[in-house]
């Protein structure tokens, strides 16, 4: 039985009056990479936001290393060691590339140094004094991921990182995520791009109508093609 870094049970979430998540349950072991797959509006992004406490209201249980986080304010949850990369990338237009990179405060030991990050993302070094939002879409995505690697967070929540990017950039992101997994990061990846996700993940959670509809492990992927086509149309 692996140690669960993240374990979620009976998670419900609401935006105002809309009930979005209906009893989500899932676990992520340390060092594991799991994806949340599903159609638009299935609730994948809301699961990540609920982990961070960024929804209107939530109930149920979200435990990080056994510590209950439902009821904690967002900034306290983040400081338990979560790096969040939002769907819209969230690059700040009033900050330079380097200011964007240095914004999230270090929360734990073991984060990457600025030098290591620039070595991993040479483009960002070159453009470190540009306004953050002047970067290309791919560079902005790299920046959004790079800035959470400095903090020492060991759980990364990555939301639709490949969305709207050219295939060559998507491949580069795939290599990057594989490298991060090798370094021991635990990753929850929300994806629409099944082929991208299939090469990277240990397990897939299929999300539909705000709950987990199915789980597929790496060795089942080939055998369960009909599951994916039924839920995702791929």
């Amino acid at each position: 039985m692996p140690e669960h870094l993240l374990s979620i049970s009976e998670l419900n979430a609401w935006y105002g009056e809309s009930h979005i998540l209906h009893g989500v349950g899932m676990t992520v072991a340390r060092g594991e990479l799991v994806t949340l797959l599903g159609r638009n509006g299935a609730g994948k992004t809301t699961i990540l936001k609920s982990i961070m406490g960024l929804v209107g209201r939530r109930s149920g249980s979200v435990q990080l290393e056994g510590r209950e986080t439902v009821g904690l304010p967002t900034h306290r949850i983040a400081r338990l060691g979560i790096g969040y990369c939002p769907e819209e990338r969230g690059i700040f237009s009033s900050l330079s590339v380097e200011e964007n990179l240095l914004l999230p405060p270090a929360m734990k030991a073991g984060g990457m140094s600025l030098e290591e990050i620039y070595e991993m993302f040479p483009n960002l070094l070159e453009r470190r004094n540009s306004v953050g939002t002047r970067l290309s879409g791919g560079e902005q995505q790299m920046l959004a991921m790079a800035r959470i690697l400095r903090t020492g967070a060991d759980l990364l929540l990555l939301d639709e990182v490949t969305e709207g990017l050219a295939p060559v950039i998507v491949q580069a992101l795939g290599r990057l995520i594989a490298r991060l997994k090798e370094r021991g990061y635990t990753i929850v990846l929300v994806e629409q791009n099944f082929r991208f996700a299939a090469e990277l993940a240990d397990r897939h959670y299929i999300i539909e109508h705000g709950h987990v509809a199915d789980t597929v492990t790496l060795d089942e992927v080939g055998a369960r093609a009909e599951t994916f086509s039924r839920y995702l149309g791929v």
Binding site: L54, P73, T74, H75, A78, G90, P104, M107, T151
Partner: peptide
């Protein structure tokens, strides 16, 4: 610009 994201970075 984006108070929610700044909270998600651990800032009060």
């Amino acid at each position: 610009e984006n108070p929610d994201l700044v909270r998600a970075f651990g800032i009060n």
